[in-house]
Design a protein around this nucleic acid. Structure first.
Lengths: 235, 235
DNA sequence: AATAAACATTGACTAAAGTCAATTCGAGAC
DNA sequence: GTCTCGAATTGACTTTAGTCAATGTTTATT
């Protein structure tokens, strides 16, 4: 994975990449490792080389809300720049991961000095905004089985017209929290989705004759068309 | 209202403000006026001088999801810059409003040419991200009465320690949709909130001896402390 | 002041999701 | 292969929110 090829870093200056190279630290972490806590003093932002990382917050009364669950190629912690250098969420490794850290100061400097880079980063922020908009919309409009259907569709190659196999990238309990439901609800909702669309489930593997079945079931309750445009833009 | 005083436009160049002045159009609209539709070709972004505007999307099966409801001093439609010049939502006036339109091109130009302005706009986007994060969190963790309590708290002056009076800024039906619930649910949830916190309700006016009652009821199910920091930052 | 239209509330019922407890399943340790 | 622990499922039940229909209330309009 080359930093320069990441869409978030497009338009970075040579000096920026030099600094990143020099000041980066790569480390491997196993499941459960806490990378930082909400409100921690922030010096670094992070890039996921492999594995999965959960971003979340906790409330006074003990419940947890999952902000996002990210995979290879995504960065996190970078928004601390705009939050008085404090992380706006906690970050935990949820599947064995290789993580690279970079100084926030380098990012801040590059934004200030390199206009194209800044514009590019704004595009990324706008894209994330759409992502969150969609989450909120789905939380409001879709029921549990529909949300799962949508989640599966977004894991798949949406160009595929024939039979499709999808693997859940992390524990079902985590998928449940990502979708804002209880594990029990997830389990029952997945059964219902199976009953209503004819998909086949074997542990973390889901098979179907065609994506169509899911599309009809889930995408009627979404304000965007299938296939999801935002997935292409990112690639 | 002076453009230069709006925090979103801080650091704008003189030339930028000249262009805005020259190319702006102000108009008054009554309730129900559609300003633009989701996916419309976008030429302008908008500033609310007075009144309220609802941003929303609709799904194939006819349900509506409210993205946000904005008041004086807020801009909208500006993110079309990053969406191939198409509006990412529909916009409708929900309380009689005075709206100023500006060419998106001017904004785009200023972002490209004025680094400080771009940085400032990124801060605004980051702030909005936190806003959405919170919405999603509350939708997951808080129940209907708690969400209403939180909504009321955010309408109030949170420094106040004595008796407080809050006026709902728009119809209860709209508040309901803003909070992601049905009007009937809103009505019942407000009664429950009244029963559990002792607030007094007269139509769109809500009174209480102190904000404390609401804080205890709602803020335990939130990952932020009371008072809400983000409200100060904006002022 | 009378009327209509939109908004708001209430009741009765249904549907969806959460909770708690009891098993069952399955991947890794030994 | 067997054991163990966490993950996943299932059942029974409760709570919460949505739906549909009826009825008040308010506000604007003539």
């Amino acid at each position: 994975m080359n930093l320069k090829n990441l869409s978030i870093f497009a338009n970075g200056s040579d000096r920026f990449f030099e600094t990143l190279d020099k000041e980066s630290q790569t480390s491997k972490h196993s499941k459960g490792k806490m990378l930082f806590l909400h409100e921690d003093d922030a010096q670094s932002f992070f890039l996921i080389k492999s594995g999965w990382v959960k971003l979340f917050r906790e409330t006074l009364d003990g419940s947890q809300s999952v902000v996002d669950i990210l995979s290879a190629g995504h960065i996190f912690g970078e928004t601390a720049i705009f939050e008085n250098d404090r992380y706006p969420y906690s970050a935990e490794v949820v599947e064995p991961a290789e993580i690279v850290s970079f100084p926030l100061s380098a990012l801040k400097g590059e934004i200030r000095e390199n206009n194209d880079f800044a514009f590019n980063m704004m595009s990324a922020m706008a894209r994330y905004r759409r992502h969150q908009d969609r989450e909120l919309e789905h939380r409001t409009i879709q029921n549990a089985p529909q949300r799962i259907g949508c989640f599966l569709l977004r894991l798949a190659d949406q160009e595929q017209t024939g039979p499709v196999t999808i693997h859940l990238p992390y524990d079902k309990t985590l998928v449940a929290s990502r979708l804002g439901m209880q594990p029990e609800t997830f389990s029952r909702a997945l059964s219902k989705l199976k009953a209503q669309t004819g998909i086949k489930i074997k542990g973390a593997t889901i098979e179907m004759d065609s994506l169509n079945q899911l599309v009809e079931y889930s995408c009627a309750a979404c304000s965007s068309e299938f296939p999801c445009k935002d997935l292409k833009a990112q690639a």
